[in-house]
């Protein structure tokens, strides 16, 4: 499947500010399930932003504006060719060994409820089957509700409240999987939802879990499925904070208005 994506982030300030900086993780890389045909990350004037790679192998861009300004923008866009691999991710850049992803992080620190969740399907011997059940359970216990959580809400809080968005589903699943002894990581990316729809305000997120003999397998607890050709994988990390599409800071008193527009479309392959 050929997918075209345009992800625009616009900042406006009510007063001029002297310094703003963002690190964005908005650049997909190739693996067996996806091939990047074209991609660019640019600022409001169309200038290509300088790129660097982080410790997880994510391609990142840095934006620093050190002159007085009242607005700025970052636009990431391009086309990807994807294939359905039943959720298995092969050939991705993995600078860290799988066991690193057993490490706990602030957002995925398990509490007793998550530990109980992790032990809930112990009778199932096939790991993939067991993780699928776990994913389904996470989905049923955490109702999808926009605005119910923030980027600093922990997995334990999410499970206790029973509400969250895709990123929270991913955190709960990751936390439980690590308790079970499976390396698990956070993935941010895009999802084509099968229809031509208006631009949304957010990208997508899910989890990848490492299963011996199989490799890294994606699980999208927000939708209860493993990623298909409709998914575009962008950045990974221990949790949201490592793979966040945009992380920014500004100096000054001004109030900020942030507008995000994400368009994901299927493109008919040209003959």
């Amino acid at each position: 499947m050929r997918i075209r994506i345009r992800h625009a982030t616009r900042y406006r300030y009510d007063k001029p500010i002297d310094l703003a900086a963002q690190v964005v993780r908005l650049m997909p890389r190739d693996h067996e399930g996806q091939r990047v045909l074209s991609w660019r990350v640019a600022d409001a004037d169309g200038r290509i932003l300088p790129m660097f790679e982080d410790g997880f192998g994510n391609r990142c861009h840095l934006v620093t504006i050190t002159r007085r300004h009242e607005e700025s923008a970052i636009v990431a866009e391009g086309e990807i060719e994807t294939a359905d691999t039943s959720g298995v991710v092969n050939g991705a850049i993995d600078p860290l060994p799988p066991s690193y992803f057993l490490r706990r992080s602030e957002a995925t620190m398990p509490d007793t409820a998550i530990q109980a969740l992790a032990h809930s399907h112990e009778g199932v011997s096939d790991p993939i089957e067991r993780l699928h059940r776990l994913m389904t359970e996470v989905r049923s216990r955490v109702t999808y509700e926009i605005g119910s959580t923030s980027v600093v809400t922990s997995a334990a809080e999410v499970l206790a409240r029973g509400r969250g968005v895709c990123q929270d589903h991913a955190h709960v699943l990751i936390s439980a999987a690590r308790v079970m002894g499976y390396p698990a990581r956070y993935v941010s990316g895009y999802l084509w939802d099968g229809a031509v729809t208006a631009p949304t305000e957010a990208s997508h997120a899910w989890a990848e879990i490492r299963i011996e003999q199989v490799g890294w397998v994606g699980f999208d607890p927000a939708n209860g499925v493993s990623p298909t050709a409709a998914y575009v994988r962008v950045a990974t990390g221990l949790d949201y904070s490592d793979a966040a599409p945009v992380r920014g800071i500004r100096r000054g008193e001004a109030a900020e208005t942030l507008a995000v527009s994400v368009e994901v479309q299927q493109v008919q392959a040209q003959q």
């Binding site: 790679e53 982080d54 410790g55 997880f56 192998g57 600078p95 860290l96 060994p97 066991s99 690193y100 057993l102 490490r103 706990r104 990390g237 221990l238 490592d242």
Partner: peptide
Amino acid sequence: QEFIRAGKIPPALVLHNPGFAAEMVGL
């Protein structure tokens, strides 16, 4: 990570150590 691979130190002691900075991997 040859020291880990060679079994000279428990992987978790390094990889799960608060002093381990993933930001440095591959630099």
